[in-house]
Computed example of a mutant assay.
Amino acid sequence: MNGTPGDQPHLAVGLGSSPRDLAFLSPLLAEVGSAVGDVPALLKLAETAEMTAPKPGDGRTAFLWELLASVTAVDVAAGRILEPHLDAAAIVAQAASPADRDVTDREVTETSAVEGLHSGGAWGVFAAEASGLRLEAVQTDGGVRLYGSKPWCSLAPQLDHAVLTAYADGGRAAFAIDLHAAGVSFADPEWTSRGLREIPSGTVHFDGVSAVPLGGPGWYYRRPGFAWGGMGVAACWLGGAVAVARGFKESLRTAAAAGREPDQIALAHLGEIDRTLTSLTGYLARTASRIDGGGLSGNGAWSEALRVRGQVAAAVERIQTLVSQNLGPGPLAFDEGYGKRMADLSLYIRQHHAMRDDAQLGALTLKGNHQW
Protein backbone atom coordinates (compact mmCIF):
# COMPACT_ATOMS: atom_id res chain seq x y z
CA MET A 1 0.00 0.00 0.00
CA ASN A 2 1.42 3.38 -0.96
CA GLY A 3 -0.67 5.44 1.45
CA THR A 4 -2.71 7.35 -1.10
CA PRO A 5 -6.41 7.90 -0.33
CA GLY A 6 -7.52 5.50 -3.03
CA ASP A 7 -5.29 2.63 -1.91
CA GLN A 8 -6.64 0.87 1.19
CA PRO A 9 -6.66 -2.61 2.70
CA HIS A 10 -9.94 -4.50 2.53
CA LEU A 11 -11.08 -4.13 6.13
CA ALA A 12 -14.56 -4.95 7.38
CA VAL A 13 -16.82 -2.21 8.72
CA GLY A 14 -18.00 -3.27 12.17
CA LEU A 15 -21.26 -2.50 13.95
CA GLY A 16 -20.45 -4.58 16.99
CA SER A 17 -19.83 -8.09 15.67
CA SER A 18 -16.86 -9.99 17.03
CA PRO A 19 -13.54 -9.90 15.18
CA ARG A 20 -14.07 -13.58 14.40
CA ASP A 21 -17.40 -12.89 12.71
CA LEU A 22 -15.97 -9.95 10.78
CA ALA A 23 -13.03 -12.08 9.67
CA PHE A 24 -15.59 -14.27 7.90
CA LEU A 25 -15.98 -11.42 5.41
CA SER A 26 -12.29 -11.23 4.47
CA PRO A 27 -12.34 -13.68 1.51
CA LEU A 28 -15.36 -11.96 -0.03
CA LEU A 29 -13.81 -8.51 0.40
CA ALA A 30 -10.61 -9.69 -1.26
CA GLU A 31 -12.61 -11.05 -4.20
CA VAL A 32 -14.54 -7.80 -4.50
CA GLY A 33 -11.27 -5.89 -4.52
CA SER A 34 -10.04 -8.03 -7.41
CA ALA A 35 -13.31 -7.59 -9.34
CA VAL A 36 -13.67 -3.79 -9.19
CA GLY A 37 -15.07 -2.59 -12.51
CA ASP A 38 -15.97 -6.13 -13.65
CA VAL A 39 -19.77 -6.12 -13.43
CA PRO A 40 -20.36 -9.79 -14.40
CA ALA A 41 -17.86 -10.88 -11.75
CA LEU A 42 -19.47 -8.64 -9.13
CA LEU A 43 -22.92 -10.02 -10.00
CA LYS A 44 -21.60 -13.55 -9.49
CA LEU A 45 -20.14 -12.51 -6.13
CA ALA A 46 -23.55 -11.13 -5.17
CA GLU A 47 -25.10 -14.51 -5.92
CA THR A 48 -22.42 -16.19 -3.82
CA ALA A 49 -22.88 -13.77 -0.93
CA GLU A 50 -26.63 -14.43 -0.91
CA MET A 51 -26.01 -18.06 0.09
CA THR A 52 -24.73 -17.03 3.52
CA ALA A 53 -26.04 -13.48 4.00
CA PRO A 54 -28.69 -13.14 6.71
CA LYS A 55 -32.09 -11.67 5.91
CA PRO A 56 -33.18 -8.48 7.74
CA GLY A 57 -35.18 -9.23 10.85
CA ASP A 58 -33.93 -12.81 11.12
CA GLY A 59 -31.71 -12.13 14.14
CA ARG A 60 -28.48 -11.01 12.40
CA THR A 61 -29.47 -7.72 10.83
CA ALA A 62 -26.34 -5.99 12.12
CA PHE A 63 -24.16 -8.55 10.34
CA LEU A 64 -26.13 -8.05 7.12
CA TRP A 65 -25.45 -4.32 7.36
CA GLU A 66 -21.79 -5.00 8.15
CA LEU A 67 -21.61 -7.08 4.98
CA LEU A 68 -23.18 -4.30 2.90
CA ALA A 69 -21.02 -1.58 4.46
CA SER A 70 -17.83 -3.62 4.15
CA VAL A 71 -18.32 -4.41 0.46
CA THR A 72 -19.14 -0.77 -0.26
CA ALA A 73 -16.02 0.32 1.60
CA VAL A 74 -14.00 -1.75 -0.89
CA ASP A 75 -15.87 -0.32 -3.89
CA VAL A 76 -19.04 1.77 -3.87
CA ALA A 77 -20.26 0.29 -7.15
CA ALA A 78 -19.85 -3.23 -5.75
CA GLY A 79 -22.10 -2.31 -2.83
CA ARG A 80 -24.57 -0.79 -5.27
CA ILE A 81 -24.68 -4.17 -7.07
CA LEU A 82 -24.87 -6.34 -3.94
CA GLU A 83 -27.57 -4.42 -2.06
CA PRO A 84 -30.49 -4.79 -4.54
CA HIS A 85 -29.68 -8.46 -5.13
CA LEU A 86 -29.90 -9.21 -1.39
CA ASP A 87 -32.95 -6.95 -1.06
CA ALA A 88 -34.74 -8.85 -3.82
CA ALA A 89 -33.99 -12.13 -2.07
CA ALA A 90 -35.41 -10.72 1.16
CA ILE A 91 -38.56 -9.43 -0.58
CA VAL A 92 -39.22 -12.82 -2.16
CA ALA A 93 -38.70 -14.53 1.20
CA GLN A 94 -41.06 -12.09 2.92
CA ALA A 95 -43.71 -12.66 0.25
CA ALA A 96 -43.36 -16.41 0.75
CA SER A 97 -43.82 -16.08 4.54
CA PRO A 98 -46.72 -13.66 5.02
CA ALA A 99 -47.07 -13.92 8.80
CA ASP A 100 -49.30 -10.85 9.01
CA ARG A 101 -52.11 -11.92 6.68
CA ASP A 102 -54.21 -14.81 5.43
CA VAL A 103 -52.93 -16.57 2.32
CA THR A 104 -55.23 -17.49 -0.53
CA ASP A 105 -54.83 -20.59 -2.69
CA ARG A 106 -53.84 -18.34 -5.58
CA GLU A 107 -51.08 -16.75 -3.51
CA VAL A 108 -49.74 -20.20 -2.59
CA THR A 109 -49.46 -20.95 -6.31
CA GLU A 110 -47.85 -17.58 -6.96
CA THR A 111 -45.35 -18.11 -4.15
CA SER A 112 -44.28 -21.41 -5.70
CA ALA A 113 -43.80 -19.64 -9.03
CA VAL A 114 -41.61 -16.98 -7.41
CA GLU A 115 -39.51 -19.56 -5.60
CA GLY A 116 -38.95 -21.30 -8.92
CA LEU A 117 -37.97 -18.00 -10.51
CA HIS A 118 -35.52 -17.34 -7.69
CA SER A 119 -33.58 -20.54 -8.29
CA GLY A 120 -30.57 -18.57 -9.51
CA GLY A 121 -29.29 -15.59 -11.42
CA ALA A 122 -28.73 -11.94 -10.64
CA TRP A 123 -31.60 -9.79 -9.36
CA GLY A 124 -32.49 -6.12 -9.22
CA VAL A 125 -35.22 -4.07 -7.53
CA PHE A 126 -36.99 -1.45 -9.67
CA ALA A 127 -39.43 0.71 -7.70
CA ALA A 128 -38.71 4.24 -8.97
CA GLU A 129 -41.21 6.36 -10.87
CA ALA A 130 -40.75 9.15 -13.41
CA SER A 131 -43.04 11.68 -15.06
CA GLY A 132 -44.50 10.44 -18.34
CA LEU A 133 -43.71 6.77 -17.67
CA ARG A 134 -46.13 4.26 -16.20
CA LEU A 135 -46.13 0.49 -15.81
CA GLU A 136 -49.50 -1.25 -15.58
CA ALA A 137 -50.22 -4.77 -14.32
CA VAL A 138 -53.23 -6.30 -16.09
CA GLN A 139 -54.97 -9.46 -14.88
CA THR A 140 -55.69 -11.84 -17.77
CA ASP A 141 -56.92 -15.41 -18.03
CA GLY A 142 -53.30 -16.47 -18.33
CA GLY A 143 -52.13 -14.51 -15.30
CA VAL A 144 -50.72 -11.02 -14.78
CA ARG A 145 -49.18 -9.18 -17.73
CA LEU A 146 -47.12 -5.98 -17.61
CA TYR A 147 -47.55 -3.14 -20.11
CA GLY A 148 -45.65 0.13 -20.14
CA SER A 149 -42.26 1.40 -19.05
CA LYS A 150 -40.19 1.50 -15.88
CA PRO A 151 -37.42 4.09 -15.30
CA TRP A 152 -34.18 3.88 -13.32
CA CYS A 153 -33.64 0.16 -13.89
CA SER A 154 -29.98 -0.19 -12.95
CA LEU A 155 -28.02 -2.83 -14.89
CA ALA A 156 -31.26 -4.27 -16.27
CA PRO A 157 -29.74 -5.75 -19.47
CA GLN A 158 -27.17 -7.64 -17.38
CA LEU A 159 -29.61 -9.02 -14.81
CA ASP A 160 -31.70 -12.16 -14.95
CA HIS A 161 -34.70 -11.23 -12.78
CA ALA A 162 -36.17 -8.29 -10.91
CA VAL A 163 -38.68 -7.31 -8.30
CA LEU A 164 -40.54 -4.27 -9.58
CA THR A 165 -43.59 -2.18 -8.80
CA ALA A 166 -46.47 -1.55 -11.19
CA TYR A 167 -49.92 -0.01 -10.97
CA ALA A 168 -52.66 -2.52 -10.21
CA ASP A 169 -56.18 -2.09 -8.84
CA GLY A 170 -55.71 1.64 -8.39
CA GLY A 171 -52.49 1.37 -6.42
CA ARG A 172 -48.99 0.01 -6.72
CA ALA A 173 -48.06 -3.62 -6.19
CA ALA A 174 -44.88 -5.68 -6.44
CA PHE A 175 -44.14 -8.37 -9.01
CA ALA A 176 -41.30 -10.73 -9.85
CA ILE A 177 -40.26 -10.94 -13.49
CA ASP A 178 -37.85 -12.72 -15.80
CA LEU A 179 -35.86 -10.04 -17.63
CA HIS A 180 -35.13 -12.50 -20.46
CA ALA A 181 -38.85 -13.00 -21.16
CA ALA A 182 -40.48 -12.12 -24.46
CA GLY A 183 -41.79 -8.56 -24.49
CA VAL A 184 -38.94 -7.05 -22.43
CA SER A 185 -36.83 -4.41 -24.19
CA PHE A 186 -34.15 -2.07 -22.93
CA ALA A 187 -33.79 1.58 -23.93
CA ASP A 188 -30.35 3.10 -24.32
CA PRO A 189 -29.76 4.71 -20.91
CA GLU A 190 -27.52 7.43 -22.41
CA TRP A 191 -25.65 7.29 -19.11
CA THR A 192 -23.18 10.21 -18.91
CA SER A 193 -22.53 10.14 -15.17
CA ARG A 194 -18.95 10.14 -13.88
CA GLY A 195 -20.21 8.36 -10.78
CA LEU A 196 -21.22 4.69 -10.87
CA ARG A 197 -20.19 4.61 -14.51
CA GLU A 198 -20.37 0.81 -14.65
CA ILE A 199 -23.97 0.80 -13.37
CA PRO A 200 -26.09 2.63 -15.96
CA SER A 201 -29.75 3.10 -15.07
CA GLY A 202 -32.15 3.21 -18.01
CA THR A 203 -35.77 2.60 -18.93
CA VAL A 204 -37.14 -0.89 -19.53
CA HIS A 205 -40.24 -1.39 -21.71
CA PHE A 206 -42.76 -4.19 -21.14
CA ASP A 207 -45.22 -5.44 -23.74
CA GLY A 208 -47.40 -8.17 -22.26
CA VAL A 209 -44.66 -9.58 -20.05
CA SER A 210 -45.72 -12.32 -17.63
CA ALA A 211 -45.27 -11.35 -13.97
CA VAL A 212 -45.72 -13.10 -10.63
CA PRO A 213 -47.51 -11.00 -7.95
CA LEU A 214 -45.78 -10.57 -4.60
CA GLY A 215 -48.00 -10.09 -1.60
CA GLY A 216 -50.95 -8.34 -3.22
CA PRO A 217 -51.79 -4.63 -3.73
CA GLY A 218 -50.00 -2.32 -1.31
CA TRP A 219 -48.07 -5.10 0.41
CA TYR A 220 -44.67 -4.00 -0.90
CA TYR A 221 -44.87 -0.67 0.95
CA ARG A 222 -46.75 -1.87 4.06
CA ARG A 223 -44.33 -4.63 4.99
CA PRO A 224 -41.71 -3.79 7.65
CA GLY A 225 -39.07 -5.05 5.23
CA PHE A 226 -39.60 -1.93 3.09
CA ALA A 227 -38.16 0.22 5.88
CA TRP A 228 -35.50 -2.37 6.70
CA GLY A 229 -34.35 -2.40 3.08
CA GLY A 230 -34.13 1.39 3.08
CA MET A 231 -31.83 1.20 6.08
CA GLY A 232 -29.72 -1.40 4.30
CA VAL A 233 -29.03 1.17 1.58
CA ALA A 234 -27.90 3.58 4.30
CA ALA A 235 -25.49 0.91 5.55
CA CYS A 236 -23.93 0.97 2.07
CA TRP A 237 -23.61 4.76 2.22
CA LEU A 238 -21.93 4.39 5.60
CA GLY A 239 -19.42 1.96 4.12
CA GLY A 240 -18.53 4.47 1.45
CA ALA A 241 -18.00 7.17 4.07
CA VAL A 242 -15.79 4.86 6.11
CA ALA A 243 -13.62 4.25 3.04
CA VAL A 244 -13.23 7.99 2.47
CA ALA A 245 -12.33 8.48 6.14
CA ARG A 246 -9.82 5.64 6.13
CA GLY A 247 -8.13 7.08 3.07
CA PHE A 248 -7.91 10.49 4.74
CA LYS A 249 -6.37 9.06 7.91
CA GLU A 250 -3.85 7.09 5.87
CA SER A 251 -2.89 10.16 3.85
CA LEU A 252 -2.17 12.05 7.09
CA ARG A 253 -0.08 9.16 8.43
CA THR A 254 1.88 8.93 5.19
CA ALA A 255 2.51 12.67 5.18
CA ALA A 256 3.65 12.56 8.81
CA ALA A 257 6.08 9.72 8.02
CA ALA A 258 7.56 11.96 5.33
CA GLY A 259 8.01 14.82 7.80
CA ARG A 260 4.78 16.76 7.15
CA GLU A 261 2.84 16.60 10.40
CA PRO A 262 -0.91 17.35 10.12
CA ASP A 263 -1.92 20.80 11.35
CA GLN A 264 -4.67 21.45 13.88
CA ILE A 265 -7.32 21.90 11.20
CA ALA A 266 -6.59 18.49 9.70
CA LEU A 267 -6.60 16.90 13.15
CA ALA A 268 -9.84 18.66 14.10
CA HIS A 269 -11.49 17.40 10.94
CA LEU A 270 -10.23 13.87 11.56
CA GLY A 271 -11.62 14.11 15.09
CA GLU A 272 -15.00 15.24 13.79
CA ILE A 273 -15.01 12.37 11.31
CA ASP A 274 -14.17 9.92 14.10
CA ARG A 275 -17.00 11.00 16.39
CA THR A 276 -19.43 11.11 13.47
CA LEU A 277 -18.66 7.56 12.34
CA THR A 278 -18.55 6.23 15.91
CA SER A 279 -21.98 7.71 16.55
CA LEU A 280 -23.39 6.32 13.32
CA THR A 281 -22.07 2.79 13.78
CA GLY A 282 -23.54 2.72 17.28
CA TYR A 283 -26.87 4.04 16.00
CA LEU A 284 -27.09 1.43 13.26
CA ALA A 285 -26.12 -1.34 15.69
CA ARG A 286 -28.91 -0.33 18.09
CA THR A 287 -31.40 -0.03 15.24
CA ALA A 288 -30.50 -3.50 13.93
CA SER A 289 -31.03 -4.89 17.42
CA ARG A 290 -34.46 -3.26 17.59
CA ILE A 291 -35.39 -4.81 14.25
CA ASP A 292 -34.36 -8.27 15.39
CA GLY A 293 -36.20 -7.80 18.69
CA GLY A 294 -39.46 -6.94 16.93
CA GLY A 295 -39.38 -3.29 17.96
CA LEU A 296 -39.41 -1.95 14.41
CA SER A 297 -42.05 -4.06 12.74
CA GLY A 298 -44.96 -1.64 13.02
CA ASN A 299 -45.85 1.94 12.18
CA GLY A 300 -42.61 3.36 13.52
CA ALA A 301 -40.39 1.44 11.12
CA TRP A 302 -40.51 3.95 8.28
CA SER A 303 -39.93 6.90 10.61
CA GLU A 304 -36.80 5.18 11.86
CA ALA A 305 -35.70 4.46 8.30
CA LEU A 306 -36.02 8.15 7.47
CA ARG A 307 -33.94 9.03 10.53
CA VAL A 308 -31.24 6.52 9.69
CA ARG A 309 -31.05 7.47 6.03
CA GLY A 310 -31.05 11.20 6.82
CA GLN A 311 -28.33 10.91 9.45
CA VAL A 312 -26.09 8.78 7.27
CA ALA A 313 -26.59 10.88 4.13
CA ALA A 314 -25.74 14.08 6.01
CA ALA A 315 -22.66 12.44 7.49
CA VAL A 316 -21.48 11.22 4.09
CA GLU A 317 -21.70 14.69 2.59
CA ARG A 318 -19.97 16.24 5.60
CA ILE A 319 -17.12 13.73 5.52
CA GLN A 320 -16.66 14.16 1.79
CA THR A 321 -16.49 17.93 2.25
CA LEU A 322 -13.97 17.76 5.11
CA VAL A 323 -11.71 15.32 3.29
CA SER A 324 -11.80 17.10 -0.07
CA GLN A 325 -11.06 20.45 1.59
CA ASN A 326 -8.06 19.01 3.38
CA LEU A 327 -6.58 16.98 0.53
CA GLY A 328 -7.24 19.54 -2.18
CA PRO A 329 -7.37 18.82 -5.92
CA GLY A 330 -4.41 16.43 -6.08
CA PRO A 331 -6.12 13.09 -5.37
CA LEU A 332 -9.17 14.08 -7.42
CA ALA A 333 -6.89 14.69 -10.36
CA PHE A 334 -4.37 11.87 -9.97
CA ASP A 335 -5.71 9.15 -7.65
CA GLU A 336 -8.13 6.99 -9.65
CA GLY A 337 -9.45 5.05 -6.67
CA TYR A 338 -10.14 8.16 -4.61
CA GLY A 339 -11.77 9.98 -7.51
CA LYS A 340 -13.98 7.01 -8.35
CA ARG A 341 -15.06 6.59 -4.74
CA MET A 342 -15.98 10.25 -4.33
CA ALA A 343 -17.93 10.35 -7.60
CA ASP A 344 -19.68 7.01 -6.97
CA LEU A 345 -20.67 7.96 -3.44
CA SER A 346 -21.91 11.42 -4.42
CA LEU A 347 -24.33 9.89 -6.91
CA TYR A 348 -25.36 6.99 -4.67
CA ILE A 349 -26.49 9.18 -1.76
CA ARG A 350 -28.77 11.12 -4.06
CA GLN A 351 -31.19 8.26 -3.51
CA HIS A 352 -31.83 10.19 -0.32
CA HIS A 353 -34.30 12.98 -1.04
CA ALA A 354 -32.83 15.42 1.49
CA MET A 355 -35.38 17.97 2.73
CA ARG A 356 -38.29 16.14 1.11
CA ASP A 357 -37.50 13.08 3.24
CA ASP A 358 -37.15 15.34 6.29
CA ALA A 359 -40.55 16.84 5.48
CA GLN A 360 -42.02 13.34 5.35
CA LEU A 361 -40.41 12.57 8.70
CA GLY A 362 -41.72 15.85 10.09
CA ALA A 363 -45.27 14.94 9.07
CA LEU A 364 -44.95 11.60 10.87
CA THR A 365 -43.42 13.31 13.90
CA LEU A 366 -46.32 15.78 14.02
CA LYS A 367 -48.66 12.81 14.34
CA GLY A 368 -46.72 11.66 17.41
CA ASN A 369 -44.46 9.09 15.77
CA HIS A 370 -41.36 9.78 17.87
CA GLN A 371 -39.75 8.76 21.17
CA TRP A 372 -38.93 12.14 22.71
Rank of each mutant, 00 (worst) to 15 (best):
S303C: 13
P262M: 04
T287K: 01
G232M: 03
G218P: 02
S251K: 05
F206D: 12
T276D: 02
G229A: 08
K249P: 11
T287S: 07
A245E: 03
R223G: 04
A257S: 08
F248D: 09
S210M: 15
W302V: 11
S289Y: 14
A288C: 10
H180L: 15
G298Y: 12
F248H: 11
G240E: 04
P262L: 05
A176T: 03
L296M: 07
P262T: 02
E304F: 02
G247P: 02
T278S: 15
T254S: 07
D263H: 05
G215S: 08
G295N: 04
G271A: 03
D263L: 08
L214N: 10
W302T: 13
V233G: 08
D263C: 05
G259S: 08
E304L: 08
G225A: 06
R223L: 09
T254F: 05
A301W: 06
H269Y: 14
S201N: 11
V209Q: 10
R197L: 14
A301R: 08
R275W: 13
G294E: 10
G298N: 12
H180Q: 15
T254I: 08
A181Y: 05
A181H: 08
D274R: 12
T287L: 03
T192H: 13
G195C: 11
A243S: 05
F248K: 10
G282N: 07
A255F: 04
A256I: 06
R222D: 07
A211Y: 04
G218Y: 01
A227P: 02
R290D: 01
A176M: 05
G240W: 01
D292I: 04
R197P: 12
K249E: 13
D292V: 06
A285R: 07
R223H: 07
F206A: 09
Y283F: 13
T254K: 10
D207W: 13
G282W: 10
R194G: 15
V244Q: 03
A266H: 05
G208C: 13
L270W: 10
V209D: 09
G202P: 06
I177N: 06
L284A: 02
G282K: 08
W237E: 07
A245Q: 03
E261H: 06
G215I: 04
D263N: 10
S251F: 04
F206S: 12
P213N: 12
F248P: 05
Q264M: 14
T278L: 15
D188L: 00
G195E: 10
C236H: 10
A266D: 09
A243Q: 03
G195H: 11
V184M: 11
R286K: 13
G216C: 08
F175R: 02
L284M: 02
S193V: 12
Y283D: 12
E198M: 12
G229K: 06
A285F: 09
E198N: 14
P224T: 00
D188K: 00
S193W: 12
A181T: 09
G295M: 07
V209M: 13
N299S: 15
W219A: 00
A211I: 07
G282V: 05
L296Q: 01
A181D: 09
R253Y: 12
H205N: 14
F175W: 03
N299C: 14
Y283E: 12
G225N: 03
R260W: 13
H269R: 13
T254N: 09
G259F: 11
M231W: 07
D207M: 14
T281K: 02
S289M: 15
I177Y: 02
A187N: 13
L296I: 04
G271K: 05
I291W: 00
D178Y: 06
V233L: 10
H269K: 14
I273V: 01
L214H: 10
